[in-house]
Simulated assay, not measured.
Amino acid sequence: MRSEVLIAARPHRRPHIECTGALAARLTEPQTVHLVSAAATPLGGDYLHIRVVVEAGATLRVRSAAATVALPGPATLESHAVWTLDVDGHLDLDPEPTIVAAASRHHASTRLRIGSTGSVRLRERVQIGRTDERHGFWSGALHADVDDTPLLRHRVELGAGSVTDDELGTPMAAISELHYPDDGAPTAGTPLALAAGGCLSTWQGRRL
C-alpha cells in the first residue's frame, strides 16, 4: 500500500493536512500534529511518504500517537518510509520509535531543506525486534541542506545483515538527533558540531 501525508504550517493559521492510504494526521493542538495509523502499516511492500512544509514565521511540532511497527508482508520483507521536509520556520519532529519486528527490512530516508530563517529539531528512534527477536533490518539516511549549502549526509544500519551485525555485540537500537542552528543541545548521545552550523548526536545500544 502507498500512503501519502502532507502537512503544511503557515503563520497565524492552522496547519493544512492531506492524507491518503494507511497513515493519517490529526491536529491535536494549534501547532501540533500527530500521525495516526488508519490501518496496519508499514507491512512488507508498503511505501510511506510524509511531506512537511513549514513557512517562515510558522512553528510546527510533529508527533505520532504510538510506535511504528514494521512487519513482513506476504510477498516481500521490505518496506519504505520517506520524509521530505522543507523548513523556513521552526520544525520539531519527534515521532515515537520504529520497531522492526520479525524478519522485516525497513528502509527510512529523510531529505531536509532548511531556509535562512529556519530552525529544526529532528529525532529518530529505532529498535530492532520485539522481545527475543533479532532478525529484522533497518537502514536510515539523512540528507540535509541549508538552502544550497550541504549540512549533513548521514546513514545508519542496524540488525541482521548490517555492517555492525555480530552475534556477540551488535547494537540493536539507535537514536539520532539533529539540531539546527543550535550546536549545543542536550541529547541522548554526544553532540557533534557541524561545519555549517547545528549539531548531530547518535546513540546505539541494545534496547531503547
Rank of each mutant, 00 (worst) to 15 (best):
residue 164 T to Y: 13
residue 162 S to V: 00
residue 183 D to W: 07
residue 193 A to M: 12
residue 162 S to Q: 00
residue 168 L to Q: 12
residue 196 A to L: 06
residue 165 D to T: 01
residue 193 A to L: 11
residue 196 A to N: 08
residue 194 L to S: 02
residue 168 L to C: 10
residue 156 V to L: 15
residue 157 E to A: 01
residue 196 A to M: 04
residue 181 P to D: 04
residue 156 V to S: 04
residue 157 E to G: 02
residue 163 V to C: 14
residue 184 G to R: 14
residue 190 T to S: 12
residue 176 S to T: 15
residue 173 A to Q: 06
residue 166 D to F: 03
residue 177 E to H: 07
residue 180 Y to V: 08
residue 174 A to M: 13
residue 174 A to I: 02
residue 196 A to W: 07
residue 166 D to H: 08
residue 180 Y to P: 03
residue 194 L to T: 02
residue 193 A to S: 14
residue 186 P to T: 00
residue 157 E to S: 06
residue 158 L to P: 00
residue 169 G to W: 10
residue 167 E to L: 15
residue 190 T to Y: 05
residue 162 S to P: 02
residue 174 A to T: 14
residue 193 A to C: 11
residue 172 M to E: 08
residue 183 D to T: 11
residue 196 A to V: 07
residue 174 A to D: 06
residue 173 A to T: 07
residue 189 G to E: 01
residue 158 L to E: 03
residue 194 L to N: 01
residue 171 P to E: 05
residue 192 L to K: 15
residue 167 E to S: 15
residue 159 G to K: 07
residue 184 G to D: 12
residue 167 E to M: 12
residue 160 A to K: 14
residue 172 M to G: 15
residue 184 G to P: 07
residue 169 G to T: 01
residue 172 M to L: 15
residue 195 A to S: 14
residue 159 G to R: 03
residue 186 P to L: 00
residue 183 D to L: 06
residue 178 L to A: 01
residue 182 D to I: 11
residue 188 A to M: 08
residue 176 S to C: 14
residue 163 V to S: 15
residue 182 D to K: 05
residue 161 G to A: 08
residue 169 G to R: 09
residue 196 A to D: 01
residue 194 L to F: 03
residue 173 A to L: 10
residue 191 P to M: 03
residue 191 P to F: 06
residue 186 P to H: 06
residue 189 G to L: 04
residue 170 T to C: 15
residue 156 V to W: 05
residue 194 L to M: 03
residue 179 H to Q: 09
residue 182 D to T: 14
residue 158 L to I: 07
residue 166 D to W: 00
residue 187 T to M: 14
residue 189 G to Y: 01
residue 176 S to I: 13
residue 166 D to G: 00
residue 186 P to C: 03
residue 170 T to K: 13
residue 170 T to H: 06
residue 182 D to W: 09
residue 173 A to P: 07
residue 155 R to S: 12
residue 185 A to M: 10
residue 191 P to K: 09
residue 160 A to I: 06
residue 175 I to Y: 00
residue 181 P to E: 04
residue 172 M to Y: 14
residue 191 P to H: 09
residue 189 G to Q: 05
residue 155 R to K: 11
residue 189 G to N: 05
residue 181 P to K: 04
